[in-house]
Simulated scan of single mutants.
Amino acid sequence: MSKYLVIHAMASPIPVVQAEKVAKAAKTLSSSDAYWVSSWVQLDSKGNVAKILCEWDAKDLPTLKKTMEQAKNMLPDFPAEGPYPMMKVDGESYR
């Protein structure tokens, strides 16, 4: 499986409850060929969601793009940028 990044940058910050719609859609659309792994959520000073960075694993880019099109149909007003090929690096990689 390859790793991909999908970015959801809000035009203006939204409540966490509203952003949870994207998590529910991701779980609904996940399959063995493309699945949501985890996300980082950037909050503003009021605790509202400004940006969501989602990590996905997929067998290939076309498969994930198909999944993202399905997500767009489920949440047409929810912004999405990508998917972008990525790699994951953490501090333990440089001990």
Rank of each mutant, 00 (worst) to 15 (best):
S32V: 07
S32D: 14
S32F: 08
D33V: 08
D33P: 00
D33N: 15
D33Q: 15
A34Y: 01
A34P: 02
Y35L: 10
Y35K: 14
Y35N: 13
W36F: 15
W36P: 03
W36C: 03
W36E: 06
W36Q: 06
V37G: 10
V37Y: 14
V37N: 14
V37H: 14
S38C: 09
S38W: 09
S38M: 10
S39Q: 11
S39I: 00
S39Y: 08
S39G: 05
S39D: 10
S39R: 13
S39P: 00
W40N: 11
W40V: 09
W40S: 12
V41M: 02
V41T: 09
V41C: 02
Q42N: 04
Q42I: 02
Q42A: 12
L43G: 01
L43C: 02
D44C: 09
D44S: 08
D44L: 11
S45R: 13
S45L: 12
S45G: 01
K46T: 11
N48Q: 08
N48E: 08
N48K: 08
N48V: 01
V49Y: 06
V49R: 07
V49S: 07
K51A: 12
K51Q: 14
K51N: 10
I52A: 03
I52F: 00
L53N: 06
L53R: 05
C54K: 08
C54T: 02
C54A: 15
E55I: 13
W56S: 04
W56P: 04
W56F: 13
A58H: 04
A58K: 04
K59F: 01
K59S: 11
K59T: 12
K59H: 08
K59I: 14
D60L: 03
D60N: 15
L61Y: 13
P62N: 06
P62E: 03
P62F: 03
P62L: 05
T63W: 05
L64W: 03
L64R: 05
L64N: 05
K65M: 15
K65A: 12
K66D: 12
K66M: 09
T67L: 15
T67I: 11
T67W: 13
T67F: 12
M68H: 05
M68W: 07
M68N: 06
M68I: 11
M68T: 04
E69P: 03
E69M: 13
